[in-house]
Every structure is written in structure tokens, then in C-alpha cells.
Design a protein around this nucleic acid. Structure first.
Lengths: 293, 293
DNA sequence: CAATTTTACGGGCTTCGTAATAATG
DNA sequence: CATTATTACGAAGCCCGTAAAATTG
């Protein structure tokens, strides 16, 4: 169960091939084969079927554990080294809608900080941001999601020593429709009533699979992370999407119809590791973002 | 960050000495020294002060992570091997009050199972049980605690792949007092009103530090895990304790005064890893315990 | 038979123990 | 100065690459 072995195990699981995994890890096939053999010997069970290479049930179990384990190992390293030398940079991780909507007020702050610091901004899907905060790749994360009013987002692994989250803003959740659409004149809609409509699934922006309603079907899928593109797709009539009101209002040709049931808001949370120094850049910015304006 | 290094790191942290750690791990001092040096080189920071050996702040951070990391590594191994060969034994882990009170009905079941299986029962404090379930040392855990009515217990690390919990019983929380005590005639008391009383702290039975009330002070501390002893101490007038009503009723000379505020019940939850086979011993017993009687 | 995994084997590095050295209360 | 940590060094073992053999679609 050496981390190295777990790493190559994961590479094999992901690529579905010993040789491809070897390439990715800069190993020889032979080394990969030996790693897997060592793991299988240690655990006393095959982890892959060969030809084709696929996970056995035991392998599938190990995969889930190994992924978390490696992230947490990195997170531990990050937490310790960060305690020693707080980073003199500021890396911001944002989910697409966290960026598009609620931090407008904080942008000036961020810009001001940027003048003094090496600041970078990364946009990625929610789980990636959570992971990046845990491993210290990102100092401050802003993630968003749809949830019941004043309910926290359900983020993966709020484990000890890991990132803490705090809500920094909520806005109404609306169904985005083209302004010419018949629905646009409704005062409110229930999601369940829109089971017949076509939706746009944008897993990295507003994953509609996580909406608390079943049976919606997607006509179009958008794999990017640009909220404007998603809004454009809705405006172009390619399908509906649940979005935060401010984003919809800002986009010409779009109308937002409030969601009646279930009660739903768009919520943004700030995510970070416990502060290590009060004068840390992330600390000041986090303070600004959480302070009531 | 090799697990071996983390293990010796923890041994040093716990014993406060390189040589003691070496003894415990069957290493030489030299090896321990090299392990620590390797970790410190890797992380780029001292983890201990020497003479006396004590954790630096960075070391303290690492300690927290390392403990969890090693448990989760064991848990991963347990989960995988269990998936391969479900254990033909049944190990039950219980907190003291889970045993004393609410599973009486299940005892017959357990005895019946015992006839067919190698069954063992272990009693330990809550966090140890949670950990033991995660690592597969224990197949089925019953843990207890005081909480608001129908609120789940807050257990450490409900992380992915880890144990799941489900409530199996609640009983009223009462303040146990000797029957001759003036309080014994009260219909209800508020914990806050008992700030002047002396309490018995029994960290491994009913840790009163976890009660949602501050400022209680302990006169006696009981470090064992025997609920009857604790009840006896209360009956003997050594102090008060918050306990589940059935336990108090069963003990001669004790009276239970219902807790008015805060709203508080004694709750028992069943803890186990996701089932791997429907005919697993743990599965049947879990089913019996969770089925409404 | 072509592609891919497994096995055999050897060089180089890592790891741990012995033993000598250094540090400190 | 006795206790405890560090450093030096060498043998044993592990790890990964080369290359040959085995497997299978």
C-alpha cells in the first residue's frame, strides 16, 4: 500500500492499460506490471482483469479509497509546509458561476491585492476546486451550487484538518428561458412541471444532475466552463437551465423565471484551509469576502 | 511521506523520545533518527525540538494528519480484503452505554448468532469504535451519545467509503441523582441550573465535556468503561451524571430527573461499512437491529 | 502475428543495523 | 558523565530498466 503503488494503480485504472499508464508516469511497462503485482500480492486478490484491462470489484473498491488517500496525503503535505512558509502568492479557485455572479463586489479588492501579490485565478468544476483547496494548490476557493435556502452546500469530505467553508452569498435560483419563450411571462414555475422541456446539461457549470428533481432530460450538453456561453445557448433556444438570477438578468435576451418548488437558491461558499497567520494574503481577502457589506 | 515514516513519526510524537519509539517499533534509535530526518528533509522543516523532544508547530500539524492518514490506509485495506472474503466471524463494537441500555432486545439475536459464528464483543470509547469499524477490526458498531431529539450523532469522519450510521434507538436523557437527593422529587431540571452541583466525568462512558452546556465542573473522574460502576458512583453520592433513563431506572437507589433544557435525548446509532454480501453475518444482524420492533 | 503483459535478471539506490561521535542537562 | 540524538559506513534488500518469454485477441 505504498503511495507510489497506489499512484500507478490509479493510472492503470484510468487509462485501462499498463503501457499507457507507464507512459503517463514515465515508467516502463515492466515497472507498472511489478507495481500492480505487488499490490495484488499484498492484498491477496486480483485488482484487474487482463485483456481487456478492467477493474475487478475489489479493484473498484481500492480505486475509490486510493483517490481519496492520495489527495489527503498531498493535503497533509500542503498543510504542513504552509504552516512553515505561508505562500507569498494568492491563488484563487472559482467555479464558473461563483465567478460570474456574486463576487463582483470583491473584484476590486482582488485587483488591489493583485497589485501587491502574485495573484492567479483558476476556474474549474466544484469537486476539483475542493480538492485543490485541500492540497494547497489553491489558497481560496469560491464554489457555488443550488440548495435549499440557507442550507449549506454538501461538499465532499469536510474531514478534520481539511478545508472549512462559509457561505458568502445567496441569490434566487431561476429557470433561464429566452425572453420570447411562453414561460417568460410566468411568475414562477415548478421544476417538476418542466420535465417535458429540454434542458442543457453543463456538468462543469451548473450540473443539473445535482438538482433535487429527477427525470429532467438534457437535449444539449455543454462541456466548457464559460457561463456566458451557457447563457448564450439558453438565449439561442437550445434548452433551459437553472441559473442564479443576477447572471440571467445581465444577459440580454434572457428572462429568469423564479423556481417555485422545490425551494431553491443559488449559494456561494468560501472554502479555505485554517488560517496559519493573521497577515496572510488569503486571510485578509477571506475577511473582506465574508464581512457583511 | 512514506507510511512507514509517518508511523515512526507518530511513535516519536507519542512517546516523546526517539529511543522509546525505536523500542516500540522494534527499530534501532538510528533508524528512527533517520526516519525523522527523512521526513524533515522532505517537508523542509523541523518536526521536533530535541532535548526535550517535542513537536514543533509544523510537527503538530503533521501529527493530526498522520493519525488520520494511517487509519484510512488501514481502512482501505480492510474494505478491499473484506470485499474479497467477507469475514466468517462477527465482531461487535459497543460503547458502554450502547451496551447497557438499548440493545437488550437484540441480545437474544446476538446470542443466537453466536451459536453459529465466532462472535466477539468489544467495549470501547466512541472514537475508538468508529475507528475500529472503519478499519474492519469491528464488523458492527453501536455507539451512543446525547443529542437533540432526532438529530444524528456527530461522529468523526463520515468520509466517502467510510462507515455509514443509522439511528437504532433513542431514550430520554435524565440527570441521575441518588433517590434520597432533594432533586429527586423535581419533575424536570435544566442543566444550566446545575452548574453548582458536582458532576462525575466519565470520558469513556458519558463524556460530559460533550454535553451542550458549559461550565459544569467535575468532582470525580471515572476512567473505566463500566456503566454499572458509574451508576454506583452516582448512587453513592459522589456526583451527578447525565444518563439514559432505562439505565437509571434499572439501578436501585437511583432516580432520573428529566432534562428540561436543552432538549436532550440519549441516542444509539448502528455503524458499519457498506455491505458486501447480503448473506453476510453483519448484514443479517444489522437488519434485525434496524428493523422496527 | 501483433500487441501487450509477465518474468528473469542485474545494476544502482535505499534502508536499516552496528558502531563511533556529538550534544546536553 | 550518563543519557540520548546524530553521523559514518557497510551489508542486505528493494526497485526499476533491459530484454526475453508468454499470452491472447
Amino acid at each position: 500500500m505504498d503511495p507510489h503503488l497506489l499512484r500507478t494503480f490509479l493510472a492503470v485504472a484510468e487509462t485501462g492499460s499498463f503501457s499507457a499508464a507507464a507512459q503517463r508516469l514515465q515508467y516502463t511497462q515492466s515497472a507498472v506490471s511489478q507495481h500492480v503485482a505487488a499490490l495484488e500480492a499484498d492484498l491477496g486478490t486480483p485488482l484487474f482483469t487482463r485483456r481487456p484491462v478492467a477493474l475487478t470489484p475489489a479493484g473498484e473498491r481500492l480505486r475509490r479509497h486510493a483517490e481519496l488517500l492520495l489527495v489527503r496525503l498531498e493535503a497533509a503535505r500542503a498543510d504542513v509546509t504552509r504552516a512553515v512558509a505561508p505562500p507569498g502568492r494568492l491563488v484563487l479557485g472559482l467555479t464558473p458561476l461563483a465567478w460570474a455572479v456574486p463576487v463582483a463586489a470583491a473584484l476590486a479588492t482582488i485587483r488591489a491585492e493583485s497589485a501587491r501579490l502574485r495573484t492567479r485565478v483558476r476556474v474549474a468544476a466544484r469537486d476539483r476546486i475542493v480538492e485543490a483547496v485541500a492540497t494547497g494548490e489553491v489558497d481560496l476557493g469560491l464554489v457555488d451550487g443550488f440548495t435549499a435556502p440557507s442550507d449549506p452546500l454538501r461538499l465532499p469530505e469536510p474531514g478534520a484538518g481539511g478545508p472549512r467553508s462559509v457561505g458568502v452569498g445567496e441569490s434566487p435560483a431561476v429557470v433561464a428561458v429566452p425572453s420570447a419563450h411562453p414561460l417568460a411571462r410566468r411568475r414562477a414555475v415548478d421544476l417538476a412541471d418542466l420535465a417535458d422541456a429540454y434542458w442543457i446539461d453543463a456538468p462543469d457549470v451548473a450540473p443539473f444532475a445535482r438538482l433535487p428533481v429527477d427525470g429532467l432530460r438534457a437535449g444539449v450538453r455543454y462541456d466548457g466552463t464559460d457561463a456566458a456561453v451557457l447563457a448564450g445557448l439558453v438565449a439561442g433556444g437550445h434548452g433551459l437551465a437553472v441559473l442564479p438570477l443576477p447572471l440571467v438578468s445581465a444577459h440580454p435576451g434572457l428572462t429568469g423565471v423564479p423556481v417555485g418548488t422545490p425551494r431553491l437558491v443559488h449559494r456561494v461558499e468560501l472554502l479555505r484551509l485554517p488560517a496559519v497567520a493573521p497577515d496572510e494574503p488569503a486571510e485578509r481577502l477571506a475577511h473582506l469576502l465574508t464581512a457583511p457589506t
